[in-house]
Design a protein around this nucleic acid. Structure first.
Length: 889
DNA sequence: GGAGTCACG
DNA sequence: ACGTACGTGACTCCA
């Protein structure tokens, strides 16, 4: 049996548009030497790499639209009317895109009067008839109407390098209709981007309902007279012609008069010489480097000009390598994310023209290397200093003299670009000389060392060179943003503090956890039995889908909320169902215990290392606000609010007998930040006089004149309002949160703003600033861009507005504790204490210390924390300590 | 791998 | 009228 042929069809226009806008932010860094924008070509080519590798086609074609007028505009003059003109920066790229496709062995093609869709539809039909396997790549979901047993439609999402495959089954699962019904759907609902109307007032929901009942537009209109009287019926009858026309417009012509056939479009693979010339012309160095030398070549890389030379490091040349007094780029390579445990596979160091590489980690353990690492006057340029600090520590070294961290710099310049791959970041700043780790090592289970050691060495060298090359550029950008202090005096030193905290780790009493786990297991068993009894059958309680069937179909409880995929069974829904059956309470209990068991007992046990500790990793370049996050395990969400979960904290213990856990937290730091940056005199006064801020707010919004009149419920509502303000208030959100009506919530907010007028000004000003400059800033010039602030989409814009209010508050609080941590580490050292800082939980620092040092810490820690910055209001710090983390609160 | 759920500040 | 609180990570199910 011969294998069936494989055909690849690309929707050229659609993918190019996606590619262009996916890399729109980098538009100006992707310019060829002669001024051509190349961002769409670059991203398109990335997509080609992925899809060619996956499909391995025998035949391939990329279809393009021929122009604006087609047979569809003849049927409906406004077809695709009102579309804005293709940006010049993109249209100039199309001729080059076609050249690229040819050089990569793919036939570009267009046909006057027809769209790319029709070319693709026609060829896919021809291939289908011969039972070939076809893959269609596009950014346009409408093309999923072409899926069949032999035809898969691959949709580009999140840019163009993530691909979503659609088979007929997937189409049905995702959209609720068969591929052939997509045109009926479009007929009924129309298409705003293609500018045809459909039936008045019919959107996706109504259209899906109608199709569910009638199957097609034709059948619907055969039975339209039988429908009972309604507005919908009137619209359907009135817009009948439009519906049929729209369906026709949406239908891909699968018999377009093509001037070529399948036999004319064999995939011929990369045409190496032309392709290399093309890459050179466009300055695509990384693609150039990836080109395989042609068969029969002597193996030498034909593009040596793009690659940096390197020397393999040995005991003999080590001294020479370590000699330069200029800053050196340095990087220890590990293939796994978790640098506490990942094997170390090699390292690189050097200056331009003098790169040294090694795949022998043992060299890091030599005295010469140790001396160099620890020598502060030997300045190092790195990518992810924390990762390198931990790795060096594992090899017995102490990494000092960190001068520039490319990862931290790129994060500060744009927190949206939170890639942690050196290659990706270098590309985004226009350096194409270096590949991504995914390209060199693969991803997921395929991640491994390249077979050829030279490939590995070359990659390390290119990385080191990229760090060196980008340093002046990024440092200048930091200065332009007034972020050089934030970089040099906050994030750089913090990375070392975090490394030390991660290395210290926190001891976990595994026996204690196991014992708790056994108890939870019993409780779960009992609850499980009870739930099965109440439901009258066994089912998987952990499956929201199965649970939904039991509650809402078998037991007929009212549906409170729906999710994309079915019934919602979340806590707030279950809370409302409590009165219907005791099963609800049991499910809530079961969920609570199951969560503790799986995440905090079993999960935590898995991350304990042989030293009886867990070593989290703090992600310093991830959040949009400047906060840290914690992974592997996450130690920033250990339970505390409910007594059962809180017990988990009993398993977090000091590293030796006679020591204790000590914890200090900022009290209401975000509200204090708000009081300070808004300049609100009423709020500042409350903090200056040490009043209970929530009770104070309650008095103000309820119009009371004595604190004794504040009931617990008033205080609760006032507290929620305070939080709401910090989050970027909305009446709806507040009403949901405290269970009041929306008008009531509205009155709360109005009363709040009347009492704290400068807070109101602050919220308005933040949004204003975001609109004018495109970003907001924290106290220490941490910056967050908010492109959504100008969106025409209400949701997107509203979100950006709330973010504009919240980010300076949350981010400044994050800045403050970061300063405190740096000062704290310094203070512990200066005082010669054994106490060790272990954890940070956003507004809280956790230490372990000998009992004898507790009295010192009780004074020292709050002093360091509350003096981290000078605000218009005092910072308040509260401390606690005890034999376990449980007691230290 | 996405969705749902729930743990934290 | 639109439909939401801000910031995270881990686990389970299920395609």
């Amino acid at each position: 049996m011969t294998q069936s042929k494989k055909l690849l069809l690309i929707d050229g226009n659609s993918v190019a548009f996606r590619a262009f806008f996916a890399m729109h932010q980098q538009l100006e860094s992707f310019v060829s030497p002669d001024g051509l924008h190349t961002n769409a070509i670059y991203a398109f080519n990335n997509m080609l790499d992925i899809i060619l590798k996956e499909v391995q086609p025998d035949y391939a074609l990329a279809a393009f639209d021929a122009g604006r007028t087609t047979f569809r505009t003849a049927q409906y003059a406004d077809y695709k009317g009102g579309r804005s003109k293709t940006p010049e920066e993109l249209s100039e790229q199309f001729p080059y895109l076609q050249e690229l496709l040819k050089d990569r062995g793919i036939t570009p093609y267009q046909l006057s009067n027809y769209e790319a869709d029709d070319i693709i539809g026609t060829l896919a039909r021809e291939a289908d008839e011969q039972a070939w396997d076809t893959s269609i790549v596009t950014g346009d979901r409408d093309l999923t109407q072409l899926t069949s047993d032999h035809t898969t439609v691959v949709i580009t999402v999140k840019g163009v390098t993530q691909l979503e495959k659609y088979t007929p089954q997937h189409v049905e699962d995702k959209m609720g209709i068969k591929p052939s019904q997509i045109i009926d759907l479009k007929g009924l609902m129309g298409d705003t981007s293609d500018n045809y109307p459909g039936v008045t007032k019919v959107g996706p929901k109504t259209a899906l309902k109608l199709l569910d009942e009638y199957g097609s537009i034709e059948n619907l209109y055969d039975h339209v007279d039988e429908m009972k009287k309604s507005k919908l019926k009137e619209h359907l009858i009135e817009d009948k012609n439009q519906a049929f026309l729209s369906k026709k417009l949406a239908t891909i012509d699968r018999h377009a008069p093509l001037t070529l056939g399948l036999a004319d479009i064999p995939y011929t693979g990369d045409h190496l010489e032309e392709l290399a010339e093309f890459y050179r012309k466009l300055n695509f160095k990384s693609f150039l480097n990836k080109l395989q030398p042609a068969a029969g070549d002597d193996g030498a890389n034909p593009f040596a000009g793009q690659l940096h030379e390197y020397t393999e490091l040995t005991a003999a040349n080590l001294a020479a390598a370590l000699k330069p007094t200029a800053p050196q780029a340095f990087e220890i390579e590990m293939l796994d994310d978790n640098y506490h445990t990942s094997p170390i596979v090699g390292f690189v160091l050097g200056t331009p023209g003098h790169w040294y590489v090694s795949s022998q980690p043992e060299l890091l353990q030599t005295d010469a290397m140790h001396a160099w690492l620890a020598d502060e006057s030997r300045r190092k340029y790195v990518f992810d200093g924390k990762r390198n600090y931990v790795a060096a520590n594992r090899m017995g070294g102490h990494l000092q003299g960190l001068e520039f961290d490319l990862l931290l710099a790129s994060y500060l310049l744009d927190v949206n670009n939170n890639s942690n791959d050196l290659g990706e970041i270098a590309h985004s700043y226009g350096d194409m000389d270096v590949q991504t780790d995914a390209e060199v090592y693969g991803t997921g289970a395929h991640r491994s060392m390249p077979e050829d050691a030279n490939v590995f060495y070359q990659h390390l060298t290119q990385k080191a060179a990229a760090i060196y090359q980008l340093e002046p550029d990024l440092y200048q950008k930091l200065k332009d943003h007034e972020q050089d202090q934030l970089f040099r005096d906050m994030e750089m030193p913090l990375s070392v503090v975090l490394a030390e905290m991660e290395i210290a780790g926190i001891t976990v009493d595994a026996e204690r956890l196991k014992k708790m786990g056994a108890e939870f297991q019993q409780t779960l068993k009992v609850l499980e039995e009870k739930i099965y009894n109440e439901a009258g059958e066994k089912f998987n309680i952990n499956s929201p889908k199965q649970l939904g069937v039991i509650l809402f179909e078998k037991m007929n409880m009212p549906v409170i909320k729906k999710t994309k995929t079915g019934y919602s069974t979340s806590v707030d829904v279950l809370e409302k169902l409590k009165s219907y059956s005791p099963i609800i309470d049991d499910i809530l209990n079961y969920r609570q215990i199951a969560k503790i068991q799986s995440t905090y007992v079993e999960g935590l046990l898995k991350s304990i290392l042989p030293d009886h500790k867990v070593h989290t990793r703090y992600l310093q370049t991830l959040t949009q606000t400047g906060r840290l996050s914690s992974v592997d395990p996450n130690l920033q969400n250990i339970p505390i609010r409910l007594p059962e979960g809180r017990k988990i904290r009993q398993a977090f213990v000091p590293r030796q007998d006679g020591w204790e856990i000590f914890s200090s937290d900022y009290s209401q730091i975000e509200l204090r930040v708000l009081a300070s940056i808004s300049g609100d005199t009423n709020m500042q006064e409350a903090f200056k006089e040490g009043r209970d801020i929530h009770a104070n707010t309650a008095m103000k919004i309820f119009g009371l004149d004595d604190p004794s009149q504040v009931t617990p419920n008033m205080r609760r509502q006032a507290k929620a309002t305070n939080f709401g303000i910090v989050y970027g208030i909305s009446d709806y959100g507040l009403s949901q949160n405290i269970g009041i009506s929306r008008p009531e919530a509205k009155r709360f907010i109005a009363a709040y703003f009347e009492q704290y007028p400068q807070v109101k000004e602050y919220t308005e000003k933040s949004v204003q600033i975001a609109r004018e400059q495109g970003y907001v800033e924290t106290l220490f010039h941490r910056r967050r861009y908010l492109p959504g602030i100008h969106s025409k989409n209400f949701n997107v814009r509203s979100f950006a507005e709330r973010t504009a209010m919240n980010t300076p508050i949350q981010g400044s609080a994050a800045d403050i504790i970061k300063v405190a941590m740096i000062n704290m580490q310094q203070a512990l050292r200066a005082e010669g204490l054994q106490a060790t800082m272990l954890l940070q939980v956003h507004d809280e620092l956790i230490f372990e210390a000998p009992s004898a040092e507790i009295e010192t810490l009780k004074k020292l820690v709050p002093k360091v924390m509350d003096s981290a910055v000078k605000l218009a209001v005092p910072l308040k710090v509260e401390s606690a300590y005890g034999p376990t983390w449980f007691a230290a609160k």
